[in-house]
Design a protein around this nucleic acid. Sequence first.
RNA 1: GCGCCCGUAGCUCAGCGGAUAGAGCAGGGGACUUCUAAUCCCAAGGCCGCAGGUUCGAAUCCUGCCGGGCGCACCA
Length: 572
Amino acid sequence: MDLEKLLTDRLAPAFETVAGVPVDPVVRRSQRADFQSDAALALARRLGRPPRAIAAAVLDRAELADLCAAAEVSGPGFLNLTIAERALGGLVSALATDPRLGVPETAVPETVVVDYSAPNVAKEMHVGHLRSTVIGDAAARLLEWLGHRVVRANHLGDWGTPFGMLIEHLVDLGEAEATQELSMGDLDSFYKTARAKFDTDEGFRERSRRRVVALQGGDEATLRLWRLLVEQSERYFLTVYDLLDVTLTERDFHGESSYNDLLAPLVADLDRLGLLRRSDGAACVFPPGQVGRDGEPLPLIVRKSDGGYGYPATDLAAIRHRTGTLGATRLLYVVGLPQRRHFEMVYAAAAQAGWLVPPARAEHVGFGSILGPDGRMLRSRAGESVKLVGLLEEAVARATALARERNPELGEAEAAEVGRAVGIGAVKYADLSSDRHKDYVLDWERMLSLDGNTAPYLQYAYSRIRSIFRRAGVAARPDAGISLAEPAERALAFELVGFGTVVAEVERSLEFHHLAAYLHRLAAAFSAFYERCPVLRADGPVRESRLVLCELTARVLRQGLYLLGIRAPGRM
RNA sequence: GCGCCCGUAGCUCAGCGGAUAGAGCAGGGGACUUCUAAUCCCAAGGCCGCAGGUUCGAAUCCUGCCGGGCGCACCA
């Protein structure tokens, strides 16, 4: 139970008595006191009474004695509330014995599909893939922790016309050579060479076209070559996920091709449902309310005029599979915001077909684009994309060097481990700590920064706490009394008891920058506490109390970092 | 043309109906014989794109404009 809610529950009845109708007391944190309630001002006109008088009347009737050390009317009619040390200490004690740190498991567990990462076979993962992968992984971790059944779906781009040219290029290179190149993770040059031949060599282009037909026709020899490409790419992607500390595994690859057999029946069913219209030779669904450039209804092309299927068909098949076969009720698509319209249309069509009906619903967890220095979207085609592993390796190298420099006591192995946790954490945090809806300009230095509001700041706070316990050689006693005489102790306590509120908010919004901001506030509160409040050199009950605060801070930091997909080394 | 997103400190970003708009970086000044200075403390830095409107109260909500990005039929 968080303090906003506790205070709201106490103030609401008093407001209702004074106003004669239910009123939200509008409780929030305040710089002037611990909390303030703003509702009296809004009520003044309606009640025809001065706001200060209303606030005073509410104070008279509210049961606050056990919670608040002070409660007073202030300014034009704010209620300023100061929490009693005993009440705050009680909440801290409750947290200390709560294995879930104030975050209850969900009362209504659901099956949730999180569709994320989705790299393309035989194409390099560039920084653009970072966002989907990192945000999606955080969503999966969070929902799982809350008690939902999470299905991770890595919607691999493993099908379509480019595979004709990719397979022909593989044939040209020879299987051994191609496998070698791909297993080294040199996907970019493989793809680009194939592309270049396709663009310049008429014969190659013709072979590629025939190869696509063979692939789609199920030619066994072609399929074998295709599988080679897919397997090598998957192997490579798994090494990136491993480096990134992402929870995706080989079991989570559900490529576009896995829906191939479902596409023809899907279109037939859409036809049977009367949703299909033929337009310029293509089979289309026209979801209501979607209008294109010329004001005409916008089609979702489920079968192209050449008889092939595009990604709308695959996405529809995936929805049908996820709600039908998997029994999912919440579908998350962690995909860039530019594709918003596409998904709106797919969801609308799926709803019309009866494949996405309440309680099942789909959410586009969209994110802004990564821009180049010119302020325009980074395009892999123009060759301006930045290889993801390059960024990650640089991050690890810098962090490892810093770890060695800052703490010579670390052994070589431990420095490497810390460097990895810090470097990767910094890159992920740089992404997760800003509002996912916004575009951002790719700034190599910003992504690699290890100062300020970054993952290492949080990790450092955590490792300092672990260091205290290593030295103390004791554990915190969760039943110790909590004393909060120092302002820094109070400030830390307020942050600690707020974890549940933040997690609940992020569960709803899937905006992880709120969690990142919270963890930064917590770490900052701890750092200030650490400077001013000695733990091991304190005596008796104060020492016991501070050990509990430390232990709780460490647990919340570790759990919060875990939810963001960031490791918390015990030593830095 | 229509739709969606975005303009906040020199830079990168929070805040999205409440009192004096907050962090970090960069730059200035301090603090390590004391649990790790990857830290802390202090000072400085703002017509919250512009103009109207709603409100007791607007960076926050509404409208219009300006500027930037993205999307709008067979590539995914």
